[in-house]
Amino acid sequence: MRTLGLIGGMSAESTALYYSHLNRLARERLGGLHSARLAMISIDFAPLAEMQARGEWDEAGQMMAAEARRLEAAGAEAILICANTMHIVAEAVEAAVEVPVLHICDATAAALRAAGSRRPLLLATRFTMEKDFYRDRLAQAGIEAVVPGADDRAALHAIIYDELCQGVISPASKAVVLDMIARAEGVDGVIFGCTEIGLLISPDDLALPVVDTTLAHAQAGMAFALG
């Protein structure tokens, strides 16, 4: 089994899901007492969140690249950035290491195609919904991601940073997000495009096909590890 390197802590809540998913997938594939071979760096999210808010993406990319190099030196044979938003700087991370960086958009696109969704609603941070990096990468795979309106984007961003990233799960916020989805027109699926969204709502809450990016990314990682 190959060793996966995880850059986590963005947030700690969703990084715990990565760890759980990867170990469960290893056990399901190999049986018995098998678990995933992982090297993890869990960063302090607060300074990075401040960089995000100030638009200091080059500085954030340098920081993430340094962490990737540390993981490579520790024996990681592929890198997973355990956050959708921080794939804004995926190219900087890729340039810093010799091992592959398994991109969350590629895993998401493959899962969407398998689910038969070509025009999904993208639920994510404001950065992921409004910047081009995510939707453009999906478009290269034939996926036209739709984002909520401006007010809904602001509300969802606040739910993610003020609640989910801090371990707060609110029934009222769940109702807000489910209402966003119900009002979306012309979509044929839903992307949980922030790694914390699955803490708030479940695919079982929806009639549409759902891709939880945290799970899809972990599945792609385990496929590499066992490939």
Rank of each mutant, 00 (worst) to 15 (best):
L48E: 14
D136A: 14
C165H: 14
I79V: 11
S202T: 15
P171S: 07
K131P: 04
V210Q: 07
G167A: 14
K174S: 09
S11W: 10
I79A: 00
S11C: 11
R183P: 06
E196K: 12
M180W: 07
C105S: 15
D204S: 14
S20K: 14
M86I: 04
A109V: 12
E185K: 15
L6N: 01
D58F: 08
M86P: 00
S42I: 00
V211P: 10
V176I: 07
A110V: 11
I79G: 00
E98F: 07
A225T: 14
A73H: 15
A49N: 15
R119M: 09
A115D: 05
L71M: 01
Y161G: 05
G227F: 04
R70Q: 15
G5S: 03
I169F: 05
T214V: 13
E77M: 13
L102R: 00
A65W: 06
L199R: 15
I191A: 08
A95G: 09
A115R: 07
L4C: 01
T85N: 02
G227K: 03
A172Q: 15
A83R: 00
V99M: 05
V89T: 02
L226P: 10
L215V: 13
E59G: 10
A26R: 10
G5E: 00
A92W: 03
A124E: 11
D179Y: 08
C82E: 00
A76V: 03
V177W: 07
Q62S: 13
G149S: 04
A111T: 05
R2T: 02
R119I: 08
G31H: 10
A182R: 14
S35F: 10
Q62L: 12
F45T: 08
A158P: 05
A158D: 13
M180T: 07
Y161T: 14
V187C: 14
D136P: 05
L200M: 09
A107L: 01
S42C: 06
I7A: 01
Y18S: 01
G61M: 11
A83D: 02
G227M: 06
Q140K: 12
L6D: 00
C82S: 02
A182M: 09
F127M: 03
Q166F: 12
H103D: 06
G193F: 06
G61V: 10
D151N: 06
D188M: 05
L48K: 09
L80W: 02
R183N: 13
G142E: 08
A60V: 02
V99H: 02
R135K: 08
D188T: 08
A114T: 10
G167Y: 15
G167F: 15
E185Q: 15
A150S: 04
R54I: 05
A172D: 15
L121H: 09
V93Q: 03
D205H: 09
R135N: 03
Q52V: 04
R135Y: 02
G116N: 12
L199W: 12
N23S: 07
V210S: 03
A172V: 12
A150G: 03
S202R: 15
A74S: 13
H103G: 04
E56I: 10
P47Y: 06
F127I: 06
S35L: 11
I201R: 11
C165M: 14
V210T: 09
V190G: 04
F133H: 03
S173P: 13
G32A: 13
D179E: 13
M222I: 14
S14K: 06
P148Y: 04
V146F: 02
L6V: 02
A46W: 15
N23L: 02
V177Q: 13
Y18V: 00
G142T: 09
G193C: 08
Y19R: 01
